[in-house]
Amino acid sequence: MSVAMIDEKVEGEIVEKNSSIFKIEDFNLWYGTNQAIYGVNLSIPQNKITAVIGPSGCGKSTLLKTLNRMNDMIPGVRTSGQVMYNNQDIFRNKQMVEELRTQVGMVFQKPNPFPKSIYDNVAYGPRIHGIKKKKVLDEIVENSLKGAAIWDEVKDRLNQNAFSLSGGQQQRVCIARCLAIEPDVILMDEPTSALDPISTSKIEELIKELKNNYTIVIVTHNMQQAARISDKTAFMLNGELVEFTDTDRLFSNPKDKRTEDYITGRFG
């Protein structure tokens, strides 16, 4: 925590501490006629880790995918309410959805590297945004892989296919790929659920470090994980946001009976 604050002061860019980067207001979402999210209000603080927990099918992934409008890809999705990103409504903004997605990156549940070399995976983002110079790309690739704490493991085999790596390494390459587009926010959809405990703890360490420079929203159904790494936790149930507060408080002193039942393992 203190490290993060020092960094913020040094960079001097972030004027208002604890300001919200996302403000979700009265948000509803339907898949066809099925309502998946009911009237969610939520402010996601900048340069913090916000965890969203809840049982399967509670709408937590749907809420996450709303933030970079990945839900647009699913036919029949309707929304109402507002999602403000840096004080602009992402659904009514003139800004292109492609631009939103370069500012709000995403790491998926299953490691999903492209069937390309490690280098080409990480260079993919910069390339689609028009960077062609080999030198610039080299630098971005190195920095991103370092940022994702995997540089030392892959620096001698950047031209190998990313599929040759272990699951945990693949996921860190995917994180590096996401860092390469220099997003402000990183959305993580259960990023460790397909990984073994050692890879998981490596990625958790990484997420805590990334907080210094990025806002992180992580969906997890591992409550211990949320408790270990997040600053704020939101608990969702049946498409509703039940409780959203500091992680310590949510786990030690939940206000809502349903939150208490869930975190003490009475259901879910």
């Binding site: 890809m73 492609e98 997605r101 998926f108 590297p113 492209f114 945004h129 587009i181």
Partner: peptide, 22 residues
């Protein structure tokens, strides 16, 4: 696999970039 299409789209690639490059 759809996963790698989504990975590309989620990085701000257009549909055509995703088709052509992935």
């Amino acid at each position: 696999p759809n996963e790698i299409r989504q990975a590309s789209i989620a990085m701000g690639a257009t549909k055509w970039q995703t088709i052509w490059r992935i």
